[in-house]
Design a protein around this nucleic acid. Structure first.
Lengths: 329, 329
DNA sequence: GTGAAAGCGCTAACAT
DNA sequence: ATGTTAGCGCTTTCAC
C-alpha cells in the first residue's frame, strides 16, 4: 500500500502536490498532474481515508438511529435518507436501539468520539432534551415534532393528522373510538393523547381507559390486538391505529375469524404503505421517503452551520374499505 | 477537545500511560490510573476514534451491501447481522445499490480506501468473481451459495429447497407450475432454473417459457403478477414464488378479484415472514436472522484469518392454505 | 505553482 | 511499570 510520499517520490514532486492532485486543487501544472496520476496508477495507489479523516477532522459519515430496521416505517425513512446521502457522497452507519436508552447512548458516544459527524434520530427513547445535550459534538436531527428550538426536525403534523383521522371516523358514524399507539413515548405520546382526549370530548364521548392501547408495532401485534379487542366488554366500534402493520394484522386476524363486516370495527391507519392499499385499509399517508430526504437535507444544512429549522410535511387521508359510513350504530 | 497529551500533562504521566489506561493495558499502577481517569473526567476527554483508526490501521467498521433496505428480506438479514455486530462493539455502514454495479463498486471502493474493514454482500449484481478481486483489501462474505472457494458464504440450500417446493406442488396434484424469481441473476439464477427444468422434466411436464417469470420483488409486483397470470393463455395451476411479498400481492389481488378458491392457482412462497403466516400462504422458511448472524460470524472469523467457510442453513416447508391437495385437475 | 514542515491524536516498539 | 519517540498517511499553512 503506497502512500503519497512514495507517489511524490515516483513522480518527482512534493507530497503537497500529490495532495493537491488528490483534492482537485486548481494550482497544479497539467504536466505534474499527469506525472502524479501516472505514478498513482503504476503503484496502484488508493488514499487512506482514515488519514484524511484525522487530518480534516471529519469523516463524511453520519449515523441513523432507530429502534429496528426490520419495520417498513423505518426502512422507508432510511431509504429516503440514503438516497440523498449517497448523492452527496456521504456514508452512514446504522444504530439499532430497540428503544434501549443505553444503545441510544452508544450512538451518542459514536458522535462524541467522532466516529460520525452527526446523527439522525428516527425515533428515540431518551428524551429529546437529553439527546440534544450532545449536540456540541455534531448536529442532531429528529424525525418527529419536537418543541426544542435548538435543533432541526422533520415530521408531519401528527396532532392535526390525528384529529383529522378522528373527525373522519366520527363522520362515518363512530363515537366509541380507540387509539392504538406504537409505544409509550414521553412528550409525543402526551400531546397525541391530549389531541385524542380533546377530540373525544368534543364528540361528547367518554373515554374508556382501555381504549388507549400502546406498544403495538408489528403485524403480529395487530393480530394480538384483535384478540384483545374481542375480549373487551366495552368494545370500541372504530380503531385509530398509528401503523399499517398493526392494522393489517388486526384486519387479517378478523378475516380469519370470519368476523362479519358489520361486526368488525372500522380501522383508520397511519403510514399508507403498499400493504394497506392491497388490503383496502383506510390510511393517513406519511411521506416517509420524502421525510428521509428532508431529514438528510436538514442534516446537511446543519453541518454547514445553517440555523435550526422545523419542517412539517403534508399528510393525506386515503379512504378505503375499512372506514365507511355506518348507519346501524 | 483535549487530547492525550494534555491528559498526560494534567495527570503528571506520559502519553503512553494515558494510552495504556485507555486501552485497559494491565501494566499501570492503580494510583496512576486513577490520576489519569480523574484528569480525563476533569477535562471531559473523549478519544478521537479517527486517530485510533489511523494508528491501528483498522476501524472496526464493516459494510453491508444490499439492493434496498426497504424490503423485509434484507431488513431481516441486516437485523441478524446487526445483533451480533453490536455485541462485538462493531459498527457498520449500509450501502444501497439498487443492483447498480456502479454503486456496488463504490462499496468496494470504500473497502479499498479502508473506510470499512470488510463487506457483507446480501445480494449483488456484479459477479461474485469480480467482487472477490477486492478481497485483498479485506474480507468479503456472501449470503448466497457461491462456487468460489476463496471466500465465506452462508445460505440455505436453494436448489434443494426449490426441488422440495416443486415436489410439494406436484404432490398436491400440480403439473403446470410456474416459477417466479426476484431478478435475473447470473450464476444463481441459472442453477435455480436448472433445478426447475430438471424437476419439471421428471414430472413429464413441458415448460411453457412464459412460466419462467423474473423481476418480481415487491407486494406491488405480486399484484401485477396476478394480472399477468390472468392474461396467460396457458395458465399454470401453481406458482413457486421466491418471495413472500410477491406471493402476498398476488393472493390479495386474487382475493380482490373474487377469484374462487378452485380457480386461484396454488402458491408456494419463500421466506415465511409474518405476512405469509397471516395470509395463510404456504412458504419455505428462510431463517433470515440466523443467516445474518452467521454472516457476521463468518466475517469475524475471516478478520481473524480463519479459512473460508461455507455454511448451509436448514429450511423448512410450512404448509398452509395456498397449497392443498387438488382432485379436479 | 511548488515545496518544506508542522501538525491531526493516537499507538506501539524500544529503552529504562 | 513507565517514558521517549517514531510513526500511521494525509492536509495545510507559510514561504518562496
Amino acid at each position: 500500500m503506497p502512500n503519497i510520499r512514495e507517489i511524490a517520490k515516483r513522480a518527482g514532486v512534493s507530497v503537497t502536490t500529490v495532495s493537491r492532485v488528490l483534492n482537485h486543487h486548481p494550482y497544479v501544472k497539467e504536466e505534474k498532474r499527469e506525472r502524479v496520476l501516472n505514478a498513482m496508477k503504476e503503484l496502484k495507489y488508493t488514499r487512506n481515508i482514515q488519514a484524511v479523516h484525522l487530518a480534516k477532522g471529519y469523516s463524511n459519515m453520519f449515523g441513523i438511529v432507530l429502534p429496528t430496521i426490520d419495520h417498513s416505517y423505518f426502512s422507508g425513512l432510511v431509504t429516503g435518507i440514503a438516497e440523498k446521502a449517497q448523492a452527496c457522497g456521504m456514508h452512514f452507519a446504522l444504530f439499532q436501539t430497540g428503544y434501549d436508552p443505553l444503545k441510544e447512548k452508544e450512538a451518542l458516544m459514536s458522535l462524541n468520539e467522532r466516529r460520525v459527524d452527526g446523527l439522525i434520530f428516527c425515533s428515540n427513547a431518551l428524551s429529546d432534551r437529553d439527546i440534544l445535550k450532545w449536540q456540541e459534538s455534531g448536529p442532531i436531527i429528529f424525525c418527529h415534532p419536537t418543541p426544542h428550538d435548538d435543533c432541526s426536525a422533520v415530521s408531519i403534523a401528527h396532532d392535526q393528522a390525528l384529529k383529522e383521522g378522528l373527525h373522519h371516523l366520527a363522520a362515518c358514524g363512530h363515537e366509541r373510538i380507540a387509539i392504538v399507539l406504537a409505544r409509550t413515548e414521553g412528550a409525543n405520546s402526551q400531546t397525541r393523547l391530549q389531541a385524542y382526549q380533546d377530540m373525544m370530548q368534543s364528540l361528547g364521548q367518554d373515554i374508556d381507559e382501555k381504549w388507549i392501547i400502546e406498544g403495538k408495532l408489528t403485524l403480529f401485534d395487530g393480530k394480538q390486538l384483535f384478540t384483545e379487542w374481542q375480549g373487551m366488554k366495552n368494545r370500541p366500534t372504530a380503531l385509530l391505529i398509528t401503523n399499517d402493520n398493526v392494522s393489517a394484522g388486526f384486519l387479517l386476524e378478523a378475516q380469519r375469524h370470519h368476523i362479519k363486516v358489520g361486526e368488525s370495527p372500522a380501522i383508520l391507519s397511519f403510514q399508507n404503505e403498499q400493504l394497506s392499499e392491497a388490503l383496502g385499509i383506510s390510511s393517513i399517508e406519511i411521506p416517509l421517503k420524502q421525510m428521509g430526504q428532508e431529514a438528510f437535507d436538514l442534516y446537511d444544512r446543519a453541518l454547514k452551520g445553517d440555523a435550526p429549522e422545523k419542517r412539517v410535511l403534508p399528510f393525506r387521508l386515503i379512504e378505503r374499505a375499512t372506514t365507511v359510513l355506518q348507519n346501524n350504530r
